[in-house]
Amino acid sequence: MIEQLRFWAIIILLAFGLFFTFVSAVGVIRLPDIYARAHTASQTDTLGAGLALAAVALALGWDSMTIYAVLLLFFVFITNPTAAHAIARSAAESGIVPLTDETEVDVEPDPSTPDEGDSQ
């Protein structure tokens, strides 16, 4: 009974992991610009890899390898957003203008008002 439950839990975790990885790949292809792609390239991947690693930990059972899987999970959760931030930041620093609603609406470059005002 417990064995069967574990088996199906592993299958479900893997299936969801696969699903989120698939969504991430679709997102990278479909989304319009580097900022939007950075969202999905790293983030959906975090959950995809996270669920797959959780499945691995469950499959290994109570073993020292399980601890490695959990540690891997931990490091994925720290490094992934850092990498996404690094990509987005370097994109911003090389002057890539993100595609936003506003840029789509006013294609004509208006005399740009210096909008440095703080919101206080």
Partner: peptide
């Protein structure tokens, strides 16, 4: 950044 849909750029 970890939460999808929001990404810290700066």
């Amino acid at each position: 950044t970890l939460t999808p849909g929001t990404l810290t750029v700066r």
